[in-house]
Nucleic acid binder design. Structure first.
Lengths: 115, 115
DNA sequence: GCGATTGTACGACCGTCGTCGTAGTTTGAC
DNA sequence: GTCAAACTACGACGACGGTCGTACAATCGC
Protein backbone atom coordinates (compact mmCIF):
# COMPACT_ATOMS: atom_id res chain seq x y z
CA UNK A 1 0.00 0.00 0.00
CA UNK A 2 2.84 2.47 0.02
CA UNK A 3 2.68 2.52 -3.78
CA UNK A 4 0.38 4.86 -5.64
CA UNK A 5 1.03 2.75 -8.71
CA UNK A 6 2.68 5.23 -11.04
CA UNK A 7 4.68 7.18 -8.48
CA UNK A 8 4.15 10.78 -9.29
CA UNK A 9 6.82 13.44 -9.57
CA UNK A 10 6.36 17.15 -9.07
CA UNK A 11 6.81 19.29 -12.13
CA UNK A 12 6.28 23.04 -12.34
CA UNK A 13 3.43 23.95 -14.63
CA UNK A 14 4.43 25.65 -17.84
CA UNK A 15 3.60 29.08 -16.50
CA UNK A 16 5.46 28.42 -13.28
CA UNK A 17 8.80 27.95 -15.00
CA UNK A 18 11.14 30.70 -13.81
CA UNK A 19 13.88 32.10 -15.97
CA UNK A 20 16.41 32.30 -13.15
CA UNK A 21 15.83 28.66 -12.29
CA UNK A 22 16.28 27.60 -15.89
CA UNK A 23 19.48 29.61 -16.27
CA UNK A 24 20.79 28.22 -13.03
CA UNK A 25 19.93 24.69 -14.08
CA UNK A 26 21.76 25.19 -17.36
CA UNK A 27 24.83 26.77 -15.77
CA UNK A 28 26.24 23.44 -14.64
CA UNK A 29 28.34 21.42 -17.10
CA UNK A 30 26.85 18.11 -16.01
CA UNK A 31 23.32 19.32 -16.48
CA UNK A 32 24.18 20.94 -19.76
CA UNK A 33 25.49 17.57 -20.85
CA UNK A 34 22.17 15.98 -19.97
CA UNK A 35 20.23 18.62 -21.87
CA UNK A 36 22.53 18.27 -24.86
CA UNK A 37 21.95 14.54 -24.83
CA UNK A 38 18.19 14.84 -24.61
CA UNK A 39 18.17 17.50 -27.29
CA UNK A 40 20.04 15.12 -29.57
CA UNK A 41 17.13 12.74 -29.51
CA UNK A 42 13.96 13.11 -31.50
CA UNK A 43 11.13 15.36 -30.37
CA UNK A 44 9.28 13.67 -27.55
CA UNK A 45 11.82 10.87 -27.24
CA UNK A 46 12.70 9.80 -23.74
CA UNK A 47 15.82 8.37 -22.17
CA UNK A 48 16.44 6.68 -18.86
CA UNK A 49 18.82 8.33 -16.40
CA UNK A 50 21.20 5.46 -16.93
CA UNK A 51 21.36 6.13 -20.66
CA UNK A 52 23.46 9.21 -20.06
CA UNK A 53 26.85 8.43 -18.70
CA UNK A 54 27.76 11.15 -16.25
CA UNK A 55 31.14 10.94 -14.59
CA UNK A 56 29.67 11.13 -11.10
CA UNK A 57 28.00 8.81 -8.64
CA UNK A 58 24.42 7.70 -9.01
CA UNK A 59 23.30 9.89 -6.12
CA UNK A 60 24.76 12.91 -7.82
CA UNK A 61 23.13 11.95 -11.08
CA UNK A 62 19.78 11.78 -9.33
CA UNK A 63 20.44 15.20 -7.88
CA UNK A 64 21.14 16.82 -11.25
CA UNK A 65 18.09 15.29 -12.86
CA UNK A 66 15.98 16.61 -10.06
CA UNK A 67 17.35 20.12 -10.44
CA UNK A 68 16.50 20.01 -14.13
CA UNK A 69 13.02 18.73 -13.42
CA UNK A 70 12.28 21.24 -10.68
CA UNK A 71 13.44 24.05 -12.93
CA UNK A 72 11.03 22.83 -15.59
CA UNK A 73 13.68 21.91 -18.12
CA UNK A 74 12.87 18.22 -18.29
CA UNK A 75 9.97 15.98 -17.45
CA UNK A 76 10.41 12.68 -15.69
CA UNK A 77 8.11 9.72 -15.52
CA UNK A 78 8.62 6.29 -14.05
CA UNK A 79 8.33 3.23 -16.22
CA UNK A 80 9.26 -0.01 -14.57
CA UNK A 81 12.54 0.34 -12.76
CA UNK A 82 13.54 3.13 -15.07
CA UNK A 83 12.79 6.81 -15.00
CA UNK A 84 12.30 8.32 -18.39
CA UNK A 85 13.47 11.84 -19.08
CA UNK A 86 12.45 14.20 -21.82
CA UNK A 87 13.12 17.82 -22.63
CA UNK A 88 10.12 20.06 -22.12
CA UNK A 89 10.70 21.67 -25.50
CA UNK A 90 7.20 22.95 -26.04
CA UNK A 91 6.82 24.42 -22.58
CA UNK A 92 10.20 26.10 -22.71
CA UNK A 93 9.51 27.45 -26.17
CA UNK A 94 6.14 28.79 -25.07
CA UNK A 95 7.56 30.43 -22.00
CA UNK A 96 10.93 31.61 -23.28
CA UNK A 97 10.95 31.53 -27.07
CA UNK A 98 14.28 30.60 -28.57
CA UNK A 99 16.04 30.23 -25.26
CA UNK A 100 16.73 26.51 -25.39
CA UNK A 101 17.89 26.61 -28.99
CA UNK A 102 20.13 29.59 -28.37
CA UNK A 103 21.77 28.02 -25.35
CA UNK A 104 22.27 24.71 -27.12
CA UNK A 105 23.74 26.52 -30.06
CA UNK A 106 26.05 28.52 -27.81
CA UNK A 107 27.09 25.33 -26.09
CA UNK A 108 27.83 23.63 -29.39
CA UNK A 109 29.92 26.57 -30.58
CA UNK A 110 31.88 26.66 -27.38
CA UNK A 111 32.55 22.95 -27.46
CA UNK A 112 33.73 23.14 -31.01
CA UNK A 113 36.00 26.07 -30.18
CA UNK A 114 37.51 24.21 -27.24
CA UNK A 115 38.09 21.06 -29.24
CA UNK B 1 52.85 55.99 -5.81
CA UNK B 2 50.24 53.40 -5.05
CA UNK B 3 48.28 54.65 -8.02
CA UNK B 4 48.81 53.24 -11.50
CA UNK B 5 46.75 56.18 -12.71
CA UNK B 6 43.92 54.40 -14.50
CA UNK B 7 43.53 51.45 -12.17
CA UNK B 8 43.08 48.45 -14.39
CA UNK B 9 40.45 45.75 -14.06
CA UNK B 10 40.67 42.20 -15.30
CA UNK B 11 38.29 41.24 -18.06
CA UNK B 12 38.15 37.91 -19.85
CA UNK B 13 39.04 38.22 -23.52
CA UNK B 14 36.18 37.66 -25.91
CA UNK B 15 37.21 34.09 -26.62
CA UNK B 16 37.65 33.34 -22.95
CA UNK B 17 34.01 34.00 -22.13
CA UNK B 18 32.48 30.75 -20.90
CA UNK B 19 28.85 29.88 -21.41
CA UNK B 20 28.42 28.38 -17.95
CA UNK B 21 29.81 31.52 -16.36
CA UNK B 22 27.49 33.73 -18.36
CA UNK B 23 24.45 31.63 -17.52
CA UNK B 24 25.41 31.59 -13.88
CA UNK B 25 25.93 35.34 -13.88
CA UNK B 26 22.50 35.84 -15.41
CA UNK B 27 20.76 33.44 -13.04
CA UNK B 28 20.66 35.97 -10.21
CA UNK B 29 17.78 38.48 -10.09
CA UNK B 30 20.02 41.33 -8.95
CA UNK B 31 22.45 40.79 -11.78
CA UNK B 32 19.67 40.36 -14.26
CA UNK B 33 18.39 43.71 -13.10
CA UNK B 34 21.77 45.26 -13.81
CA UNK B 35 21.92 43.73 -17.27
CA UNK B 36 18.38 44.84 -18.00
CA UNK B 37 19.29 48.36 -17.00
CA UNK B 38 22.43 48.45 -19.11
CA UNK B 39 20.58 46.94 -22.04
CA UNK B 40 18.05 49.72 -21.79
CA UNK B 41 20.70 52.28 -22.57
CA UNK B 42 22.10 53.04 -26.00
CA UNK B 43 24.74 50.87 -27.59
CA UNK B 44 28.08 51.64 -26.01
CA UNK B 45 26.53 53.80 -23.31
CA UNK B 46 27.95 53.47 -19.85
CA UNK B 47 26.51 53.86 -16.39
CA UNK B 48 28.09 54.20 -12.99
CA UNK B 49 27.42 51.50 -10.41
CA UNK B 50 25.55 54.08 -8.39
CA UNK B 51 23.17 54.76 -11.27
CA UNK B 52 21.47 51.43 -10.70
CA UNK B 53 19.62 51.28 -7.46
CA UNK B 54 19.98 47.76 -6.11
CA UNK B 55 18.23 46.97 -2.86
CA UNK B 56 21.40 45.74 -1.21
CA UNK B 57 24.45 47.19 0.48
CA UNK B 58 27.30 48.76 -1.44
CA UNK B 59 29.57 45.80 -0.77
CA UNK B 60 27.04 43.46 -2.26
CA UNK B 61 26.59 45.71 -5.25
CA UNK B 62 30.33 45.63 -5.84
CA UNK B 63 30.20 41.87 -5.61
CA UNK B 64 27.51 41.49 -8.27
CA UNK B 65 29.24 43.85 -10.68
CA UNK B 66 32.40 41.86 -10.29
CA UNK B 67 30.65 38.58 -11.04
CA UNK B 68 29.23 40.11 -14.21
CA UNK B 69 32.60 41.47 -15.25
CA UNK B 70 34.48 38.25 -14.55
CA UNK B 71 31.90 36.31 -16.54
CA UNK B 72 32.48 38.67 -19.45
CA UNK B 73 28.98 40.12 -19.45
CA UNK B 74 29.98 43.70 -18.73
CA UNK B 75 33.07 45.84 -18.98
CA UNK B 76 34.10 48.22 -16.26
CA UNK B 77 36.41 51.17 -16.38
CA UNK B 78 37.24 53.77 -13.79
CA UNK B 79 36.58 57.41 -14.45
CA UNK B 80 37.16 59.71 -11.59
CA UNK B 81 35.49 58.41 -8.48
CA UNK B 82 33.03 56.50 -10.61
CA UNK B 83 33.26 53.15 -12.29
CA UNK B 84 31.53 53.00 -15.61
CA UNK B 85 29.78 49.84 -16.69
CA UNK B 86 28.75 48.73 -20.13
CA UNK B 87 27.30 45.58 -21.62
CA UNK B 88 29.77 43.68 -23.79
CA UNK B 89 27.16 43.32 -26.51
CA UNK B 90 29.53 42.74 -29.40
CA UNK B 91 31.65 40.21 -27.59
CA UNK B 92 28.65 38.28 -26.34
CA UNK B 93 27.07 38.35 -29.75
CA UNK B 94 30.24 37.11 -31.36
CA UNK B 95 30.69 34.33 -28.88
CA UNK B 96 27.08 33.31 -28.29
CA UNK B 97 24.89 34.72 -31.04
CA UNK B 98 21.46 35.75 -29.90
CA UNK B 99 21.97 34.68 -26.31
CA UNK B 100 21.78 38.09 -24.68
CA UNK B 101 18.75 39.14 -26.69
CA UNK B 102 16.95 35.89 -26.01
CA UNK B 103 17.54 36.08 -22.29
CA UNK B 104 16.51 39.72 -22.12
CA UNK B 105 13.41 38.92 -24.08
CA UNK B 106 12.61 35.98 -21.80
CA UNK B 107 13.14 38.21 -18.80
CA UNK B 108 10.84 40.88 -20.20
CA UNK B 109 8.12 38.32 -20.91
CA UNK B 110 8.37 36.86 -17.47
CA UNK B 111 8.22 40.26 -15.81
CA UNK B 112 5.19 41.20 -17.81
CA UNK B 113 3.52 37.91 -16.93
CA UNK B 114 4.20 38.41 -13.24
CA UNK B 115 2.95 41.96 -13.27
C1' DG C 1 44.86 70.87 2.56
C1' DC C 2 39.74 69.18 3.61
C1' DG C 3 35.60 66.99 2.77
C1' DA C 4 32.42 64.60 0.04
C1' DT C 5 31.59 60.98 -3.31
C1' DT C 6 32.33 56.52 -5.08
C1' DG C 7 33.76 52.37 -4.91
C1' DT C 8 37.08 48.37 -2.64
C1' DA C 9 39.01 45.00 0.66
C1' DC C 10 38.44 42.07 4.20
C1' DG C 11 36.26 39.18 7.33
C1' DA C 12 32.13 37.18 9.00
C1' DC C 13 27.85 34.68 8.68
C1' DC C 14 24.91 31.38 6.91
C1' DG C 15 22.54 29.17 3.44
C1' DT C 16 22.98 26.64 -0.94
C1' DC C 17 25.36 23.44 -4.03
C1' DG C 18 27.86 19.50 -5.82
C1' DT C 19 29.67 15.53 -4.29
C1' DC C 20 29.83 11.06 -2.02
C1' DG C 21 28.50 6.56 0.35
C1' DT C 22 25.31 3.63 2.48
C1' DA C 23 21.03 1.86 3.04
C1' DG C 24 16.53 1.34 1.14
C1' DT C 25 12.47 0.98 -2.33
C1' DT C 26 10.31 -0.34 -6.48
C1' DT C 27 9.95 -3.15 -10.32
C1' DG C 28 10.72 -6.89 -13.63
C1' DA C 29 12.56 -11.42 -14.63
C1' DC C 30 13.12 -15.96 -13.22
C1' DG D 1 9.84 -15.86 -3.45
C1' DT D 2 14.42 -14.34 -4.94
C1' DC D 3 17.51 -11.75 -7.31
C1' DA D 4 19.18 -8.07 -10.04
C1' DA D 5 18.47 -3.45 -11.99
C1' DA D 6 17.36 1.38 -11.51
C1' DC D 7 16.75 4.92 -8.89
C1' DT D 8 15.91 7.44 -4.08
C1' DA D 9 16.54 9.12 0.66
C1' DC D 10 19.38 10.67 3.96
C1' DG D 11 23.25 12.42 6.07
C1' DA D 12 27.84 14.17 5.60
C1' DC D 13 31.37 17.09 3.85
C1' DG D 14 33.72 20.98 1.83
C1' DA D 15 33.29 24.69 -1.40
C1' DC D 16 30.91 28.48 -3.05
C1' DG D 17 27.62 32.43 -3.01
C1' DG D 18 24.98 36.41 -1.34
C1' DT D 19 24.76 39.32 2.32
C1' DC D 20 26.50 42.62 5.62
C1' DG D 21 29.49 46.08 8.23
C1' DT D 22 33.61 48.42 8.97
C1' DA D 23 37.58 50.29 7.52
C1' DC D 24 40.10 52.01 3.63
C1' DA D 25 41.52 54.14 -1.04
C1' DA D 26 41.08 57.13 -5.10
C1' DT D 27 39.26 61.14 -7.15
C1' DC D 28 37.10 65.65 -7.51
C1' DG D 29 35.80 70.24 -5.93
C1' DC D 30 36.57 73.80 -2.82
Amino acid sequence: MPTASPRALDHPARTEIRLEAVLHALSDPMRLQVVRFLAGMGEGEEAACSAIDLAVSKSTTTHHFRVLREAGVISQVYRGTAKLNALRRRDLEAQFPGLLATVLNADASQRQRLR
